[in-house]
Nucleic acid binder design. Sequence first.
DNA 1: TGTTTAAAGATTGTATACAATTTCTATATA
DNA 2: TATATAGAAATTGTATACAATCTTTAAACA
Lengths: 218, 218
Amino acid sequence: MNKKKNEAIAYEKIKRAIMLKRLVPGQRVTEDWVSNELEMSRTPIRAAFTKLENEGLIELVPHRGAFVCSPSDKELEDVFNLRIVLESYAAESAIHQMTDEHFKELDELLKEEVKAYEDKDYEEFLRINSHIHAYPAKVAGNKFLLQEVERLNQWADCYLILRDNFYTTPMDQVLSVPEHREVVKALKKRDAAAAKKAIESHMLSTLNDLAERTSIFN
Amino acid sequence: MNKKKNEAIAYEKIKRAIMLKRLVPGQRVTEDWVSNELEMSRTPIRAAFTKLENEGLIELVPHRGAFVCSPSDKELEDVFNLRIVLESYAAESAIHQMTDEHFKELDELLKEEVKAYEDKDYEEFLRINSHIHAYPAKVAGNKFLLQEVERLNQWADCYLILRDNFYTTPMDQVLSVPEHREVVKALKKRDAAAAKKAIESHMLSTLNDLAERTSIFN
DNA sequence: TGTTTAAAGATTGTATACAATTTCTATATA
DNA sequence: TATATAGAAATTGTATACAATCTTTAAACA
């Protein structure tokens, strides 16, 4: 059995807290405080902070503490544009290496996504969403590409707002699902251009949705 | 005056040692050893190691030490392909925002690149090369894009082999310079397609050069 | 009232001791 | 000779004390 390091535990717990909005953008977090909360010394907390800063989730201000990142509209847009570029490239690279086995797995993921929604399991929903988005990069086999796709994906997850009415939205208005299906359809047809188009429009639709929900005057 | 943290000093010194091949791919490096060499405690060394691992320059093996990354041919190829994608996108994004001032700066960088070569200042040459490559991403103003471009650029720098005969190669056979000029020319003409093509061919030419020089049977 | 300044407090930055884990080495055994 | 094994050694992982630095507070002053 491989016992997990405290550093890794701290990293995951903090990240989860940000994703679930228990730590909100702009909030200040000190090493001491987290150290007390998680009942471990500051050493592993510091290591976790460093990693989270590298991923753009917190900002480290010397002698002040860590602050949960509070991205501007432009930054959100920048990230989504970059995701379009990278995930499109991933799809293009992977499209001729995908086997029936891969498509079966993708179909399975799509089903699981619906199930997670029906079960109102938000964390699971996000996890599966990540898997779907990273799938082409995984098949492409470029680990640098995969790493960056996953990093941006995770970053975006932290700013997807968990609305009160998220699960009361009728299934057919949850755009994610049909949009993902569209991408998979294009991949199955080995139509790289269509896949890229589907990825772009899905990404823009998510960004748009996000922008609307984030806006104060809405 | 802003005194630099030991952690930052350690990070830079280790990175430089890798770039200058004082630490070679596959070499084992322990926290204790670096701690003695740099005459500081293990704490800042550990932090530096974490950062270097995140950037893909070393691999951390629990209870064994850190190992300077020893990339496969495929990994080199993957990185250069990704660089093509990202730097092309950067050029496309920046091309209509570039002012005469920007072009003047770029021309200046090209001149400095030649000068560094003539002065046989390899480190300066690499530094300027990095600036040139990152320039469009900087103008584009997408900090996520810039960060990744710089990271991959730096990663590649660590595997550019400093040949004995590097500075004896006649200037007109150092492909970098004319290829960079080609990219700038396309940017000046606001010809995104040409810029992308020039970036791609420059990147492939660098990769090719690298592959030839790295090959054992050559 | 607003501004400067000094001291107190808070927080990170670093060193170091020790614990946990793994690797290495030498010995015993077949 | 090859393999298993136990103990020693090496190395990272963690806790903690203290140093350095920055922020806050409050008092003094104009």
